[in-house]
């Protein structure tokens, strides 16, 4: 008997994500994938191309708040062409149209939720692939891989379907759509190790300039850089191995009120 070859942790994560993509494609009638241009999103796109042998057999959606960094828009234009992507650009309502009981940054972030609802309504997608991870945020830790939403896009975290042995929930009454989360088990450092291993392109803003870098990219006005000297992928990994500051520390809406994120999420925020 030859010795068994244990898969590395990254190999396991990759295999699981590919399995999820293929389950999604086999069972969801009209899928689309969110492409936020961030590092997780790019890893997710890479995994989709692996799952489908270089193809991305469904449209990508960029919900554009109009307030992203110029570097992000440049990245989008470059790889849309280079990777031959079917990209849908969606707009968002002005902040004045959003629930004014939300704290300011959460209110601003909620524009994206509304923008996504517009696109879903227009294209009638039944499944949306999103690159959230359980380690990002305590509420995301409770998500399922296949997570049904009501027709108004709401997430009922108290009544989630059982998820047994990779049998994800793939059948729904009409009017439901489902969020699919291929990266749920990945952590921030897994993402960077995979970017390094696979040589996946990312926006330059993640690399330190003048002692600052972005760990997480959102809208310009509600995203703050962290002090860092990490200017290469290897240095970022080295930094993450030693830090105990959370990834979303620079995302203002996470820190406004005890339940701000929860309110965003039950309302359909990714």
């Amino acid at each position: 008997m030859e010795p068994s070859v244990r898969q590395s942790h990254l190999d396991q994560l990759e295999a699981e994500s590919i399995y999820i993509f293929r389950e999604m494609f086999a069972q969801i009638e009209k899928p689309a994938m969110l492409w936020s241009l961030g590092k997780d999103s790019n890893v997710m796109l890479w995994l989709a191309r692996k799952a489908f042998f270089g193809h991305v057999p469904f449209p990508l959606v960029h919900v554009d708040t109009g307030k992203k960094f110029p570097e992000m828009y440049a990245f989008r234009e470059k790889y849309e062409k280079e990777w031959n992507l079917n990209l849908i650009r969606g707009g968002c309502p002005p902040v004045e149209d959003i629930d004014d009981s939300l704290p300011p940054a959460a209110r601003s972030a909620a524009r994206k939720t509304e923008g996504l609802k517009w696109i879903l309504a227009e294209h009638q997608f039944t499944g949306v692939v999103a690159g959230i991870r359980r380690d990002e945020q305590a509420i995301r830790a409770k998500e399922r891989v296949f997570s049904p939403r009501s027709d108004s896009g709401e997430w009922s975290f108290k009544d989630q379907p059982p998820e047994l042995w990779d049998h994800y929930k793939t059948e729904f009454p009409p009017g439901t759509h489902v969020r699919i989360h291929p990266l749920l088990q990945w952590t921030e450092i897994d993402i960077w190790r995979y970017i390094q291993r696979e040589n996946i392109p990312v926006v330059d803003l993640y690399f330190a300039k003048d002692g600052l870098r972005y760990r997480s990219l959102g809208d310009q006005d509600i995203t703050n850089p962290v002090p860092s000297t990490a200017s290469t992928i290897a240095e970022i990994i080295e930094e993450l191995e030693h830090t105990s500051v959370s990834e979303r520390a620079g995302r203002a809406m996470d820190h406004e009120a005890e339940d701000a994120f929860e309110r965003l999420r039950t309302d359909g925020y990714m």
Partner: peptide
């Protein structure tokens, strides 16, 4: 753009080396 810089402090945690096993 506001620059609420968040401080990044190292902890005393020993560094994980490369590909560690996950249980």
């Amino acid at each position: 753009m506001t620059q609420n810089v968040v401080e990044l402090k190292p902890t005393s945690q020993p560094a994980p080396t490369g590909q560690r096993e996950v249980l």
